[in-house]
């Protein structure tokens, strides 16, 4: 990470601790009838450490400017594409689980996620995507603990009577 990024993060942390002091602690702690002492103490620690971090960031930034080597990591945004895609796909899976049920949503998730991770074999991907949700679903059924249900679970219930 370059110094500019460190400075931005320190700025965000300081802004958050100020928000905590002046908005979150009064509305989410004091207004609910709880003592503000301990949350305020931790918040003060966060503010102090963030200021120290900011100070280090400024030193590093000055050093970078002196040495004219403010390096920007190449391809940083490209690196984040797959993690972000995984986050979106996992989020969509979690949200769809309530409506589609565990088996169908997990089947879809595994197909897309394994492609994100660079899977080239459709046979293996399909094998995992079908087998894993079914095995987990049957284990939970055996333990009398139900996962979110949808059309596939209803079909299995109907088959099993």
């Amino acid at each position: 990470m370059n110094a500019r990024s460190e400075l931005s993060i320190a700025g965000v942390l300081i802004a958050f601790s100020l928000l905590n002091y002046f908005y979150l602690i009064p509305t989410q702690v004091v207004a609910e009838g709880s003592s503000p002492v301990y949350p305020a103490l931790i918040n003060t620690m966060l503010l102090c450490f963030s200021l120290a971090y900011l100070g280090e960031g400024i030193r590093a930034w000055r050093k970078e400017r002196r040495e004219h080597n403010e390096a920007r990591p190449a391809g940083a945004h490209k690196d984040m594409f797959r993690p972000l895609a995984m986050l979106v796909v996992t989020g969509a899976w979690v949200l769809s689980m309530e409506h589609l049920g565990f088996i169908i949503s997990t089947f879809g998730f595994l197909i897309i996620a394994s492609r994100i991770f660079g899977s080239k074999s459709w046979t293996k991907t399909l094998g995992l995507s079908v087998a894993m949700p079914l095995i987990i679903s049957f284990i939970f059924r055996g333990l009398n603990a139900l996962l979110p249900e949808g059309p596939a679970e209803e079909l299995i219930n109907w088959i099993l009577g």
Binding site: T90, F109, L110, L147
Partner: peptide
């Protein structure tokens, strides 16, 4: 096969948290 392993790990995580 890492491309199948890590999605499988996510499924185990989510099921574990849900359970």
């Amino acid at each position: 096969n890492y491309s199948l392993f890590f999605p499988g790990v996510v499924v185990c995580c989510v099921v574990g948290v849900y359970a």
